[in-house]
Nucleic acid binder design. Sequence first.
DNA 1: TCAATAGTTCATAACTATTGAACTAAGGAG
DNA 2: CTCCTTAGTTCAATAGTTATGAACTATTGA
Lengths: 128, 128
Amino acid sequence: MKPLVHPALRDITVEGILHALSDPVRVAIYADIVGSDCSQTCSNFVNIVDKPVPKSTLSVHFKALREAGLIRGERRGVEMYNVSRCSEIDGRFPGLIAAIVKAHNIQSEESRTPKVKSGSLKKRRLER
Amino acid sequence: MKPLVHPALRDITVEGILHALSDPVRVAIYADIVGSDCSQTCSNFVNIVDKPVPKSTLSVHFKALREAGLIRGERRGVEMYNVSRCSEIDGRFPGLIAAIVKAHNIQSEESRTPKVKSGSLKKRRLER
DNA sequence: TCAATAGTTCATAACTATTGAACTAAGGAG
DNA sequence: CTCCTTAGTTCAATAGTTATGAACTATTGA
């Protein structure tokens, strides 16, 4: 199987980061990975948004996050574990990732207030 | 002529902002508008990147920035003046715009140092 | 060896972006 | 007033990107 591609820190671009995070599914996945202290498999995220995400689509999203330099993926047996590269990125673009994730969280909180959304996100957290 | 569309603050989304700024031409235009204290016409930006941007393309880029909620445009006679909405946005997503613009500026500085790009902007390299 | 599971690749259809050409609208000059 | 110039918009063609079902690979375990 093809080895995973991870750009060097110096090859990460602001545009690449913004593009990767301009998709609602990807930014939700990424905010979750950044906010969690252990690595995450792809299939954890099938229900990250209200409509289930097909696994081919998830695979493409993870590839986009990896190639933008946002996450690091590692195959372990049949699964793939993903961790964020935010401390690396923070060395080059201080505060960028934190500001985006914070804005995303503010927006998610807002959208919970008007109507009660199905909290599938929080549920997974509990079982760790 | 059609009136300009500007979303209300509450209708501005993080994804919309990130998408609008994930284009190298748009982020350069926007960083310039944010960094300048007076409003700017579209055609000021024909040479914002090394290759001149066609005016139809510029028009579309300004529309994208407006509809993402990043700038406010006002027609004055035959020209259009643009100002950033960053203080409004900052009220809802604190630090987001500043972090992105800062990251963009860091990256622009870097790209002036390592290799001499056919730089139409400034050739800092020569001074080192 | 076979089955199950996790993720990838491929083909194609749907979507999005770029840009030359034609257009509109405002402000002069005569 | 009419004509010209300038700034920006719209349209249509085309180029490029993205989403996803189906088929595939790789690993583990029975």
